[in-house]
């Protein structure tokens, strides 16, 4: 790889000219690495820890896909992207998939030609204000200065929300979550708005999280999910069903602790057997080894484990499952059947 980078520079890609665009799945296998687009840093979702290792909820999806395809959850190259660069990075093939709390919208799916492969987090836009401001509802924010990440759907929702309620505001556009946090703490804006999960993650990183409240209004639907390029359905299927396998695993009681044991021999639950490849040929249909889902689940655990480990109530971010509970528990997570 290194060699192609260097020589590519020297010969202006003369070496690789004419290389036809192959299917992403084959590319990833040939490369031995999955290129996964993530945020530049949002604690809990995707952020490098002090050793420079990427950790988080979105990162876990990347690792699961890498484990399913390559059998190795560490075979991931994380590409930090901003709101501006994420779609180009995906469209131009710089990354194979994007797991960057990206909202599934009509235009992104249809006009920008991307394929959302499912929803890994049901979110909604919220507002965070300092407690001493004494605001208890977003409708009281008439005339307030609002920090807002540009290039996100939240920017449009914000305009819609204030227009609908016929109140005014002054936007302070910022590029990254880190910047928004600084602006908000410096008092350059009265309120910071983004997905409520992001607000919780941001607040968790504050010195005194208790001084800030998240207002009760959720002003939009933000279904966040991984996405791939349009037109490569085999690859889209791989990502979609890897995500589904994590959700189904939780529903079926498969965890990282017992997945090896369950996969060692066919058990008495047919769907678990099909999922784990001890029965049927689902892996083969995807163009993956039979134990693809075993690897994916073993990488970080099932959906519930990933959630608890990264953003759940035991972490500083402390998000409740809410809408993101299994449908059997009254949430929206509902994996199509594995058969």
């Amino acid at each position: 790889m290194k060699k192609t980078i260097f020589l590519g520079a020297l010969t202006v890609a003369g070496l690789t000219a004419g290389a036809a665009a192959a299917a992403t799945l084959d590319d990833v296998k040939a490369r031995g690495k999955l290129n996964c687009g993530v945020t530049t840093g949002l604690v809990g979702f995707a952020a490098p820890d002090s050793n420079g290792e990427w950790k988080g909820f979105d990162v876990a999806v990347c690792r699961a896909v890498a484990a399913a395809v390559l059998g190795d959850p560490t075979a991931v190259e994380f590409v930090p992207t901003t709101g501006k660069t994420r779609f180009t990075a995906l469209a131009s093939g710089e990354v194979d998939m994007l797991a960057r709390n990206t909202t599934w919208t009509f235009t992104r799916d249809v006009d920008l030609k991307f394929e959302f492969t499912g929803i890994n987090y049901y979110d909604g836009q919220g507002f965070m204000v300092p407690k001493d401001l004494g605001v208890s509802s977003a409708k009281e924010l008439d005339g307030a200065t609002v920090c807002i990440q540009t290039g996100t759907t939240t920017e449009l929702n914000l305009a819609d929300f204030f227009r609908k309620n016929n109140i005014s505001y002054e936007p302070v556009p910022i590029e990254t979550n880190a910047e928004g946090q600084q602006q908000y703490l410096a008092g350059a804006c009265d309120t910071y708005t983004t997905d409520s999960s992001g607000l919780a993650a941001t607040r968790a990183a504050f010195e005194n999280p208790g001084d800030h409240v998240i207002l009760p209004e959720i002003v939009s639907k933000e279904p966040l999910g991984p996405l791939v390029r349009h037109g490569d359905n085999e690859w889209g299927d791989v990502v979609r069903w890897t995500l589904n396998s994590l959700v189904a695993a939780e529903e079926l009681g498969v965890t990282s602790a017992n997945v090896e044991e369950l996969a060692s021999a066919a058990g008495d639950k047919p769907e678990v057997n099909r999922l784990l490849g001890t029965e049927g040929n689902l892996g083969e249909q995807l163009g993956l080894p039979a134990d693809w889902a075993v690897k994916a689940i073993a990488a970080n655990g099932n959906y519930g484990e990933i959630f608890e480990k990264n953003i759940g109530e035991s972490t500083p971010i402390g998000l409740a499952r809410g809408l993101n509970a299994q449908w059997t528990d009254g949430g929206l997570l509902y994996s199509p059947p594995f058969r």
Partner: peptide, 23 residues
């Protein structure tokens, strides 16, 4: 370099962001 140049290279040519910025 960031949002356009990638379209001008053949897919998978491995011209990464650093190189595009250098160009």
């Amino acid at each position: 370099a960031n949002v356009m140049l990638a379209y001008f290279f053949p897919p998978g040519s491995g011209v990464d962001l650093f190189l595009r910025v250098v160009i």
